[in-house]
């Protein structure tokens, strides 16, 4: 479903701030794969997701989604294939627009937007049903501005929006990092549910090793712009946090004690 081939990305080339963020990352996801992505700060996790999403184009390598080469497509064109939830709850929704309007915008992802109504009556009814299923108490606040919602509610709404127009690929970029633990757990549970119900191919970046082990069927770890650990299936199921840490220090060298702390 997703094929990343040898992608490279350097930020601020030729300056003192030069940073090789991705150094030849290759990754192939099968239809329905749910891969969790871990790594220390600056390892390239979010960079990899942004490369796929098309925030900028990569310096070298290629990316294809569902057989379509998207390497040179701008972000808004790739959006046709991709559902996204960001780390910052503010980023995923339009705060000055109503809940239904946000949903309606998302349901037209990848389609031509013409002069038909932005939100139809039938849509309203179906969104109300979906929101009731989310069990967030939003079903009676369809016309509330999204800016009035809490961070958790926004992330849940963004998840729903990402799955409305079934994406070929769902990108979750530390989407629970800005939430309190209880809310984060709820949003993660909801993510699992949405991924399962829609059979979505998913990439989830997380700082939490335990979450990375519990969720999904495959786990990769990035270090210094490369994939250094890649486990899946039974092997992943049996993985524990201490094992993962040990694996990590083996591949990264012993000078990474700081990252250990960050990751645990």
């Amino acid at each position: 479903m997703l094929e990343i081939k040898e992608i490279w990305k350097t930020f601020n080339p030729g300056t003192v701030n030069e940073k090789q963020a991705l150094r030849g990352v290759s990754l192939t996801l099968k239809d329905g794969d749910f891969v969790t992505v871990i790594g220390g700060n600056g390892a390239g996790k979010s960079t990899m997701l942004n490369a796929v999403a098309g925030t900028w184009t990569v310096d070298a390598g290629s990316i294809s989604i569902g057989g379509t080469d998207v390497t040179h497509l701008p972000e808004f064109k790739r959006a046709k294939f991709i559902g996204r939830v960001f780390q910052d709850p503010m980023l995923g929704t339009a705060p000055s627009m109503q809940i239904v309007e946000n949903l309606a915008l998302a349901s037209r992802r990848g389609q031509r937007r013409g002069l038909g109504w932005g939100v139809t009556k039938e849509e309203k009814a179906s969104y109300q049903k979906m929101l009731r299923n989310l069990d967030l108490g939003l079903e009676n606040r369809l016309t509330s501005k999204v800016g009035l919602l809490s961070g958790g509610q926004r992330q849940a709404l963004t998840l729903l929006m990402a799955s409305l127009q079934k994406p070929k690929l769902l990108l979750l970029d530390e989407h629970t990092a800005a939430l309190d633990p209880k809310t984060a757990a709820k949003v993660l549970e909801l993510s699992d549910r949405i991924v399962e119900e829609n059979h979505l191919t998913t990439m989830m970046v997380t700082h939490n090793m335990k979450d990375a082990i519990v969720h999904g069927n495959r786990l990769i770890m990035l270090y210094n712009g490369r994939i250094v650990i890649d486990v899946s299936g039974e092997e992943k199921k049996r993985l524990t946090v201490p094992q993962l840490l040990e694996l990590f220090s083996k591949v990264s060298g012993s000078d990474e004690a700081d990252d250990k702390l960050l990751l645990s």
Binding site: A94, M97, R108
Partner: peptide, 18 residues
Amino acid sequence: CSLRATGSNPNMARAQGI
């Protein structure tokens, strides 16, 4: 609506294919 979304949150707008 896509115009309003652009003003409200350009990141979101692009992520929705606008």
